[in-house]
Each structure stands twice: as C-alpha cells, then as structure tokens.
C-alpha cells in the first residue's frame, strides 16, 4: 500500500465517507477522523504507518483534540491524525493494539488531560502520583489549588 498522503486520504474519504476531513496544515497532511471510526482507520493505517511517534491531546475551549503523529519509516512519510472529543465525555478507543507505543503515551494523556482510552489494558496515572486530584494540563486546572491529594498534602 502506497502511503502517499493525498492518495491515502482520498481513499479513506471514499471508504468512510465525507466525515473524514483534511485540515489545512502547511507542514504535514492532517486528517480529522470521527471518534467512532478511529479503531477501523487506525487498524488500516497501522499496516503502512509502522511508527506511532507521538500521541497527545489539546484542551480547546469547545472540545478535546487527541493528536496522533504517525510515521512510515520505510517511505519517510508523515501523517497526523486528529480526533475531537466532547468536553463532558472525553472518551476514545485505545490504539494500543495497533501501536504498542500508545501504551505509555495514552497513559500520559489520561494522566495529564483526563482523556479516557477505552480498551487500554492498564489505564492508570503515569507521571502524577496515584492519588493526585485533577488533570494538570486542562485549562481549568487551578494552579494555586491547595488540596492536590485525596488525603490532603503530604505531611512534612
């Protein structure tokens, strides 16, 4: 399967309908995918894009945006995949079955932004302590919050 990005997106649009949107980005092909289509598309893309370089999320005022940075190492091609999730229920399927690299990257996004990845085998906090309250990279996270831990701050 050729991984030439334009042809690929055209093929994806043909297969999954116009819900697949190409976002304007001068540096790299970026596709916006509806969350419910992600498992199928990820499985298809994983055949050619063999490296999930990075995975993160951004807290926009209207939605959460999960970004997948894909690389096809043999062809040296890049592709960026985006999923927008509602603010009240940021849930999306895990892609850890397609790219095991997502195992720790999804945990990080869960820890810092509170995105829930369904189907992740071990979705726990990774950088913050287990009893930490809140998700620090959300915009509504108060920096001067006194009580960061469920049982109050640790004794000094």
């Amino acid at each position: 399967m050729r991984v030439e990005p334009q042809a690929l997106t055209a093929r994806l649009q043909e297969k999954y309908g116009p819900a697949i949107e190409v976002l304007p980005d001068p540096t790299v092909t970026t596709i916006l995918v509806p969350p419910e289509r992600l498992p199928a598309i990820a499985a298809e893309l994983a055949e050619s894009f063999n490296l999930l370089l990075d995975l993160t999320a951004v807290d926009w005022p209207e939605y959460f945006e999960v970004v997948y940075f894909l690389w096809s190492v043999p062809e040296a091609e890049e592709l960026r995949l985006k999923v927008r999730l509602p603010k009240d229920r940021p849930e999306v399927s895990s892609v850890s079955a397609c790219w095991p690299a997502a195992l720790c990257l999804e945990r990080e996004a869960y820890d810092l932004l509170g995105i829930v990845f369904r189907g992740h085998p071990d979705l726990r906090r990774i950088l913050c302590p287990d009893d930490f309250v809140g998700h620090p990279l959300r915009k509504d996270f108060a920096l001067a919050q006194a009580d960061r831990w469920e049982e109050g701050p640790p004794a000094r």
Partner: peptide, 24 residues
Amino acid sequence: YLVSDGSTRPYRLHIRGPSFVNLG
C-alpha cells in the same frame, strides 16, 4: 508539538521525550 493561539505564550506545548517512549 507547539500550538499557538496568536498570543505571546504557547497555548500548548507537548514534548516527546525519547527516553520516556524507549522505557516502554
């Protein structure tokens, strides 16, 4: 990964630490 909203500060900065992923 640098996201700008047009202000003087980054809206979001994500850093891919290679050691973090390699440790996985």
